[in-house]
């Protein structure tokens, strides 16, 4: 094996500098290459979520996105879905900080009158098998479902707390948080309509 380069101060600094330079250049190069696809993947992900929660549309909700400020100082993004220029639904990317494992995000699709068309849980760290059930639970039958209900008319609070929606069995905290997020979305939507 060839002899190793001596550990003089000059050598050490020089080598580290060169290695860092080469490394940064290589990484920078890949960065340029992947910047586009990464941004595209992000937009796609949002578009998929929007498609899932509102009726069929032919505009670009991402381009028509508008923001509304919430009462607690946050900002929500609202994506209008239009067909032939007429509003068919609005997807709202909302959050709650009251989750069992902290903050989580859901996309709620409202019909023009403010009733719920559908929803999709985006990111969460709720307990798998318990809080994570919210991914499907609130689409279920009867009192646990939020589909077609309107927070202006129905109380979007868990029945345990005197409301009209049944919480997930054994996952009350996640359920409360979920409804908190939906309520926040609805408030922002109604505020944005004015």
């Amino acid at each position: 094996m060839a002899k190793k380069l001596e550990s003089t101060f000059r050598n050490m600094v020089l080598v580290l500098f060169v290695v860092t330079l080469v490394a940064s250049t290589a990484v920078g190069f890949i960065n340029e290459f992947t910047k586009g696809p990464i941004a595209e993947a992000k937009q796609n992900k949002k578009l998929q979520a929007i498609k899932y929660v509102v009726p069929t549309f032919d505009n670009n909700p991402n381009a028509d996105m508008y923001k509304v400020e919430t009462a607690d100082g946050g900002t929500l993004e609202l994506y209008p879905a239009k067909k032939d220029g007429v509003l068919v639904g609005t997807a709202v990317k909302t959050y709650t900080k009251k989750g069992f494992s902290g903050i989580f995000w859901i996309m709620v699709g409202f019909n023009p009158d403010g009733s719920i068309n559908n929803y999709s849980v985006l990111e969460h760290k709720e307990t798998p098998g318990l809080g994570s059930k919210m991914e499907e639970w609130f689409r279920g039958e009867g009192k646990q479902s939020i589909i077609k209900k309107n927070p202006s008319a129905t109380k979007f609070i868990v029945s345990k707390d005197g409301g009209d929606i049944d919480a997930i069995t054994a996952a009350t905290i996640s359920s409360r948080a979920f409804l908190d997020a939906v309520q926040r979305a609805h408030n922002a939507y109604m505020k944005g309509l004015k």
Binding site: M1, K4, S7, L16, A23, I30
Partner: peptide
């Protein structure tokens, strides 16, 4: 052999970190 012994750990780390960043981005 081009990396002086005293700085081999930082040197290796920079090399490894670059590949990790590339994997992360890809």
């Amino acid at each position: 052999n081009l990396i002086p012994d005293k700085v081999r750990i930082p040197g290796f780390i920079i090399i490894i970190a670059s590949f990790v960043t590339m994997v992360d981005m890809s």
